[in-house]
C-alpha cells in the first residue's frame, strides 16, 4: 500500500508498504530516517520514540497505515540551526555512550521539558521511565535533563 504523512515538516510518501510494517520500519528503511532506533520492537525500551501529532509514542507500535495523513517528528527533526537545548545538554553532560537509546530519550526529554519546564528529579525519572539505557546508569542522563532545563530557563 501507499502511505503518505508529514515527517519533520515535510510530506513524505512510501510505496509498496507491506501492511504489517511499523511506522518505525517505514521511517528507517523507506524514508532514509534511521535516527529512531530498533532496539526492542515491542514498546519496552523507548528507543524509537517519535512524536505522532505532537505526542510521544513508540514508532514500533504504530502500524504504518495508521500514520497516514498524520504529523511525525523524529530525532532528526529536533535540531534547528544548531543543536536543540536537550541535544546539546546530552553531549555536554556525558549522557551519550553507545548512543542507541539517545534518540528516543531526546524526544521523550524534549516533551518532558515542554510539559514541565522545571522538573524535579522524581519527575525526570517518571518522565523517562519508558526509555531504557544500558550504558550510563542514567546519572548523566539526569544531569543532562537538569542542564537542559536550566539552560532553557535562562534562555526564556
Amino acid at each position: 500500500m501507499r502511505v503518505t504523512f508529514t515527517v519533520n515538516g515535510r510530506e513524505q510518501q512510501a510505496d509498496d508498504v507491506w501492511e504489517g510494517e511499523s511506522l518505525l520500519y517505514v521511517l528507517r528503511e523507506r524514508m532514509g530516517l534511521p535516527g529512531s532506533k530498533n532496539a526492542c520492537e515491542q514498546g519496552e525500551c523507548g528507543s524509537c520514540t517519535v512524536r505522532l501529532d505532537g505526542v510521544p509514542v513508540c514508532a514500533c507500535l504504530v502500524a504504518a497505515g495508521q500514520a497516514e495523513g498524520r504529523d511525525v517528528v523524529t530525532v532528526e527533526g529536533l535540531a534547528g540551526d544548531g543543536l536543540s537545548a536537550v541535544q546539546q545538554a546530552f553531549v555536554d553532560a556525558g549522557a551519550v555512550q553507545c548512543g542507541f537509546c539517545t534518540p528516543g530519550l531526546l524526544v521523550a526529554a524534549d516533551d518532558l521539558l515542554e510539559q514541565n519546564p522545571s522538573p524535579s528529579d522524581a519527575d525526570i525519572r517518571e518522565g523517562l521511565s519508558g526509555n531504557l539505557c544500558r550504558c550510563t546508569g542514567y546519572e548523566k542522563i539526569l544531569d543532562a535533563v537538569r542542564l537542559a532545563a536550566a539552560r532553557r530557563g535562562e534562555g526564556a
Binding site: R28, E29, G32, L33, P34, G35, S36, K37, N38, T74, V75, E76, L78, A79, L83, Q87, Q88, F90, V91, D92, G94, V96, G99, F100, T102, P103, L106
Partner: peptide, 23 residues
C-alpha cells in the same frame, strides 16, 4: 580532561550510522 565525545553530535542528531542503519 573531560573532553567531550567526537561522535556526540552525530549521536544526538540521529545521523550516527549504527550497523542496523546501513543501506
Amino acid at each position: 580532561e573531560s573532553k567531550l565525545r567526537p561522535d556526540g553530535t552525530l549521536k544526538v542528531t540521529g545521523e550516527f550510522a549504527y550497523s542496523s542503519d546501513l543501506w
